[in-house]
Design a protein around this nucleic acid. Structure first.
Lengths: 210, 210
DNA sequence: GTCTATAGCTAGATAGAC
DNA sequence: GTCTATCTAGCTATAGAC
């Protein structure tokens, strides 16, 4: 429910409350449709008090974006990860990690905000392009290329297979959030995600010699 | 540049101008950030005159959504299409048709508006879910199932293969529009789209007996 | 760090003349 | 079908008291 849950005193500061309320309202109504007044009302202070914590409405949005990027890096395997020892299980793990991260309400809401703003806000656009599309794609490509060289998967083009693995996941995740927003059943799309990963693994797995 | 280019007199009516300008501004700034005043200024009339053509700002948006849905049906093969005679070429054709339709500036702009509004506007959300995701997916599934029964493709699960074909296209198309919005090169993503279709066809095509 | 008060502006929509 | 004029309401942000 909260950004960092609490500070060192176990209390949620006004600044954190403003952050949480903003994330919630922006994700539901869109940045432009939310007023400082509304945020203040929800937090329980006057609108002028907001400016003691954030110099502008735009700044609140940028802080939200920064938080999102920071959390994303937590999900990523550290640079030290030994790519030489990875097995195809990494693909299942990555999907699982992504699922876990975006199951936190705050990250789910910020994802919506970013999708909402992507065509009008350059920072949001760059997050989608760089952090949500390019980076996972490049990592997948690198891993597949390495597995190819080690001969533990079928000799398929890593450039193509990275698209085949990564791109459906992005669409499926967006569909998942849209269904949830409409209070519709998401079981079907979760099944599709599982089937997709299974199918991908079956395609890259070499035939067993008997 | 215009909705229907012109009416029967070859002239663009004020109503059409309002439509075109609204599509343009909404796609660039988002619905909430555009004022009736701004639309009127761009059209060359006073804001009160807008209300002679559309009863509210919300109505303009809904008319835009209706137009989008109407154009989408044009792309779709008529119900009369003989599914029994389809060959795997249909997949290439569908991608081509989609590409053509969304290359028209108006459709591209409305697509952006819909993506922008999807989490805050139920009509936009339903268009994404129903017209952009579910409908193409179900059609692909039906076609694959029929080809399966006729034995002209490999015996793969149509439910899974429909995801494998359709979902990457949605992501790739969004990436394409984001890159264009950022004035970045789209060659790479277009190549990926082609490779994806080629790969998909190679997967479903049965091995040739020699 | 919160408040009251307010400046300065913009919004969507309507009334009624022409 | 366009205009001027205006209503009512909302907005971001600031000044300054406590």
């Amino acid at each position: 429910m909260t950004k960092t849950s609490s500070n060192k005193n176990g209390k949620i500061s006004t600044k954190e409350k403003i952050f949480d309320v903003s994330v919630d309202l922006f994700s539901k109504k869109g940045f432009d449709a939310v007023s400082i007044r509304e945020i203040a009302r929800e937090v329980g202070i006057r609108e002028s008090s907001i400016y003691n914590h954030y110099p502008s409405k735009e700044t609140i949005l940028n802080v939200i974006f920064q938080y999102f990027k920071k959390e994303l890096t937590k999900m990523r395997p550290p640079e030290a990860v030994n790519i030489e020892k990875l097995t195809p299980d990494i693909f299942r793990e990555r999907v699982h990690l992504t699922h876990m991260l975006f199951r936190t309400p705050t990250m789910e809401k910020i994802f919506k905000i970013i999708i909402n703003e992507q065509f009008k806000n350059e920072k949001a656009r760059k997050i989608v392009l760089h952090n949500l599309i390019e980076e996972p794609h490049k990592f997948t490509e690198k891993v597949l290329d390495n597995m190819n060289q080690r001969g533990i998967i079928r000799p398929l083009d890593p450039k193509i297979m990275a698209v085949e693995f990564q791109y459906p996941i992005f669409s499926l995740f967006m569909e998942y959030l849209l269904l949830k927003s409409n209070n519709l059943n998401t079981e079907d799309v979760e099944t599709r995600l599982k089937s997709h990963v299974d199918f991908f693994l079956s395609v890259i797995t070499p035939e067993v010699e008997k």
